[in-house]
Design a binder for these strands. Structure first.
Lengths: 218, 218
DNA sequence: AAATTACAGTAATTTTATCACAAAAATGAC
DNA sequence: GTCATTTTTGTGATAAAATTACTGTAATTT
């Protein structure tokens, strides 16, 4: 398994660029829960996800979290190398949501290559635009969709990611993803349960009527 | 007044690139209220603001607005040319908030140049990262700051932009900027007035105690 | 001057957030 | 295995903010 297979524009790079990437890239295995990048504290490099799942979130002064987006196999995490683009002026935290394998392209190498390569710079543009788009989508959800719709959508999304109707997740974690309070999640889940759409247990939510959840989510 | 003076990386472009920009760039004068770009409907080109003020906002299905960021003299509006970056998957509306003068660099020219120029592609990256950062900042405000703080901050920001303590703005417009309901703005302004921090009149808000407003905004 | 429109105010209700506390389930130390 | 601790869930009270549904009034148009 080499970078070549995971880096979409590989065949548009020059031999020299490929060589430099190959020589500097590092493989890293991280277990669930590992913080791969913590705001402006570090700037290791670009992650290319081989397997697993990462989560990008922001953190308030009081310790509240909101998940901004997620990264999956073949996704590229640009913000872990946020210092390669000066104008990025916000802190984001990247955490492994599952045991994951990633390639790490060191910041200085990537920055140097990007400065000299229109192909790489344009590609970086596309990655950033993708994340930007996800964030804009999130804003629209938060601003204009009521909580029941958002929660239903979240449960369905989780279920689809996990390929299972039985989610192993606590109310508190759901609240962190959605940027709300745990009590709010508990209450809405109880309502969903009373309507027969989910079935609750400690640390678990089972989706028992996905059609209705989907209808609620719109 | 030429593009040269307003385009920061002018002297890092090749002669050919400069010529192409010079030959294709268009000057446009727009009066307050003009919609310069409307989501995915159009993709005229990159705006370089000579004078005036633009506003970027999103629009919900029900017609609610939220201001995402603003653009001033020498700022560059990339999202009016959103189609140059494929991965931009959201709709934004750009409106002239004041009578403005802008240069328009046509989409196809900019796209062509960017594909061949690392300098231009990297610069585009920086512009996008700036807007992305502003959006992230906005999210943090919305998620974690209470409405009184945000309103106080908004009033002070407006006052500083207009260079005046007497704002000519309606409650409804403030609500559109902040993505909330007009009644909510009315009530909070009434409270501010009862505390002697502002003085209200039809279509106008006068800031009478900026220090306290600042203290509230944190 | 009357009618229309834009803007502001307010009351009632609902939704969401916050605070405070308690109960139940899981976990670990012993 | 039992007890203490921690984690997770449940819930009531209260507050903040959004929504709905009006009323009133200043400004503008006709």
């Amino acid at each position: 398994m080499t970078l070549k297979e995971y880096f979409p524009i590989w065949n548009r790079l020059t031999d020299s660029e490929r060589k430099q990437l190959e020589q500097s890239v590092i493989r890293r295995s991280v277990s669930k829960g590992t913080i791969l990048h913590n705001g402006s504290e570090d700037c290791v490099g670009l992650f290319v996800i081989c397997s697993g799942q990462l989560r990008a979130f922001i953190l308030s002064d009081e310790g509240k979290e909101v998940t901004i987006y997620r990264l999956f196999e073949r996704d590229i995490c640009l913000l872990s190398a946020s210092c390669v683009v000066q104008s990025i002026q916000f802190d984001i935290i990247i955490e492994a949501e599952k045991d994951s394998e990633v390639f790490v392209i060191p910041t200085d190498i990537y920055k140097k290559l990007m400065e000299g390569s229109a192909v790489l710079a344009n590609y970086t543009n596309e990655i950033m635009a993708s994340r930007f788009s996800e964030v804009m989508w999130m804003i629209e959800q938060i601003m204009w969709k009521s909580f029941d719709k958002r929660l239903a959508a979240f449960l369905l999304e989780e279920s689809s990611l996990e390929q299972s109707d039985s989610l192993k997740i606590t109310h508190d974690r759901i609240a962190s993803h959605m940027g709300t309070a745990r009590e709010v999640v508990t209450r809405m889940l109880r309502y969903f349960q009373s309507e027969g759409m989910v079935s609750l247990a400690r640390g678990a939510v089972e989706l028992t009527d996905k059609k209705r959840l989907f209808a609620i989510s719109e």
